[in-house]
Structures are given as C-alpha cells and as structure tokens.
Design a protein around this nucleic acid. Structure first.
Lengths: 205, 205
DNA sequence: TTTTGCTTTAACCAAATGGTTAAACCATAA
DNA sequence: TTATGGTTTAACCATTTGGTTAAAGCAAAA
C-alpha cells in the first residue's frame, strides 16, 4: 500500500486523493489521510497548512485531468466519425484508469458550486468543446446527419463514463442474471457498443 | 423550506434525505439535519436513536425506490421495442424526479459494500432483471437483432441516468458553446435520443 | 565534530460532533 | 381540575476533529 520510494509529500497527495474521492471534503478525516499515507498527522499540516488547502490541490488536479481529457479532439484529416471513434477510445481508456474522477467532481460541485466555477474558468478560459465545433462544421458540409450536437455530446459522455461510475451497482444487478460482470464488461466490448451508437447517430445511411 | 403541515418525524426524514444525499453518512452532520428540519437536535435522537439508524432508514428507502424502478417491465402484448420505449420514458421521468438517487447509492456502496449487499439481497431475493429476460426471449424468436443484452442494459441505464447526475458539469461545459442547457436539455429531447439508440440497437433493419 | 536547516514526531488545545438527561410543554382522558 | 403520556427543549457530556507547538531526528555543510 505505502510506496517506499516516494517522498512524504507524494505519499500524502496519493492518500489524500483516495480519501477525498471516497468521502468528499466534509466526510474525509485528516487522521484517515495520515494513516493511509503512513505518516504522522502533524506532517500533513507541515506540508499543506490546512484541510482546505490540501483538498484544493487534489480537486484542482482532478479538474485539470478531467477537462484536459474532455477537450482533446484531433483535427487531423480523418473523417469526423473516425475522429469521434478515437475520442471514444481515449475516453474509455481514461475512465478505466480514473473511474472515480467524474463522480468526485460532480459531488463537489453540488456542495460548493462557487469553487468549481472559479476554478474551471481558469482552466477553460472560454474554450468551447472542440468535438462539438468539429461536428457542427461537418454537419454544415453535409458529411454527417443533422443532429443536436449538444445532446449527442451528452449521450456520448453518458455511455463512456457511467459504466465505470455505476460498476458496483451493475456488478450486483447483472450477477443475478448469472453473468460475470468483469468478464462481460471488458472495455473492448464497451468501446464497440459506443462506436455502434456513434455510427448510427452520425452516419448518413 | 420547512413544511408546516407535517409531523416532526416527516420533517426529519425529509431533511435527513437531503443532507445524507448531499454529504453521505460520514460527511452529514446531525446538527445540519436538525437545522434543515427546523427542530431541536435532541429530537432527532428521540425519533431515531442514532445517526446510523436514521441513515439506515434513508438508505433503505432509496434502495427500494431504485430497484423497484429498475425492475418494472410490462409484459403486455406489445412488441419488445415498444416495451423498451416505455421503460425509457418511465426511467427518465423517474430520474428527473430523483436525480441524486443513483449517485447516493453508488457512493454508499463504495464506502460500505457489505451493508448494500445485505440490504439488496432482501429487496431482490434472487429476482433477475425482467427487461433482459424479455429481450433474450425476443432474440430467440428472431424479433430483434442479436445483441449483448447485458451491455445493452448498461448502455440504456447510462443514457437515462448520467445526464441527470452530471447536469452540473454539462451545464457548465455546454454554456461555453453559447447554448442554454436547461432549454436544450428537456427530458423530451433526451427521451427521443435514447429511443433512437434503442431503435438502432434492436431493430432488425 | 559541530552547526545548520529541513523533516518528523509526541503531546497538546479549542472547537465541533454524536449522544444523554432531566425538566418543561401540551393535548387528552379521568 | 388533575393525572397521564407522548413530545420538545436547554443544558450537559465524552469523544473526535482540525490544528499547534516545541522538541527530537537527521543528513549535509562548515
């Protein structure tokens, strides 16, 4: 659990990430973070003056990672559909690696919307979502079906991230059906089904 | 905020639901619940002996409501696709009314999986998901495409519930695109796009 | 070796937290 | 009117919480 080859500060950040993501700002306990990091509680306050300061760092990291991912969209010469395919692959790989990140952000927005808005303004600085822009261009050129791009974006995000968020529920619900969730739910299968959705949503025939 | 025409017990349950759903078991404060209910903190312990007992009641109610919904599937003489359409409508109406319910359950499973498993066993008693059974029957009869029913179920749940969970994020992300989220994101529009997904996933041609 | 400066700790502290208690309140029945 | 029994409260209590402090470790420079 405790990585020996890392500094106290790194151990703290790792532990804080885990504990804050599980319990949120209010639910998390400094003692819990200290124990998880395998260090003294006073050392937390030596490196990060307060709970809020430490949380801030974790939350900011999560926001950066999340919005970086959501806004990557290659502007290569490939057809838009293939670019969306690529986006789906990257997204699913990302959520497989950080399954709790979107829940964490959503939960904390609910509790402290002002903090979120302030921070996101810094991160995004008026940038709009590249994929939506690309889709609208392609639509204007008649390369894809006429669709509601915002709704398409919402659907896509739903398909890519909810399976990881709700894994614990699905695991239980589907087990009753005598299927092994972890076997059924390979990211490969998910990618294929989301790509099917993209295809039927965008492809003209 | 405080409903005058309700007993103290009802006021407490309503307040506890709100506070627990927002902060979780650990993050919630009894004083906060008392204040929200507009009553004395000692009265909480008069009606529900402890924080855990009160939480238990709220969590159980949520589980019941959630699994009741997820397993309703009419066995009328309609074609399966129409039945799935109906299911989509009901689901989206349900999540519009209780947008935080799935997040609440997911979060608490993460923290206390044993409690969840114990409670769900009581609620579900070996029942498997009716929709999946119906789809498999229809598939055997050749009425619909050959699909992975479990994955279809996951996709469907994702499309129906994530938009409500992630509303705060989407609201922000899409505003940059100069669109009014609440106007764009009517449940009507969502229903239509999810039905499109159902159609293209199940319909044979 | 001694000094310097960063790191880590044990022992505290004040405030907040879940929970208790005994008394006050208040409608109804005797 | 006066018991009666459920309801509500203020005043507490023990424990936990975030946070501080002063001293101890400890590696590298002098």
């Amino acid at each position: 659990m405790e990585q020996l080859n890392s500094t106290s500060e790194e151990k703290i950040l790792k532990a804080a990430k885990d504990v804050f993501m599980k319990y949120g700002l209010y639910g998390a306990r400094m003692q819990d973070i200290a124990d998880t990091a395998g260090i003294n509680k006073a050392l937390l306050h030596y490196y990060f003056r307060s709970k809020e300061k430490l949380f801030d760092k974790i939350f900011e990291n999560a926001l950066h990672k999340y919005f970086e991912r959501i806004n990557v969209f290659s502007d290569s010469s490939l057809p838009v559909i293939d670019q969306v395919f690529k986006y789906v692959e990257n997204s699913i790989d990302f959520y497989a690696e950080y399954p709790k990140i979107s829940m964490f952000i959503i939960k904390e927005i609910e509790i402290n919307p002002e903090l979120f808005h302030k921070k996101v303004q810094v991160i995004k600085k008026g940038k709009s979502i590249k994929m939506i822009e690309a889709l609208e261009k392609a639509m204007a050129k008649g390369e894809i079906k006429k669709i509601d791009t915002a709704m398409f974006f919402i659907n896509l995000q739903s398909l890519c991230s909810y399976p990881f968020i709700a894994k614990p529920i699905f695991k239980h619900s589907l087990k009753a059906n005598d299927k092994d969730y972890d076997k059924d739910f390979s990211t490969g299968k998910l990618k294929r089904s989301v790509k099917n959705f993209v295809e039927s949503s965008l492809s003209k025939k």
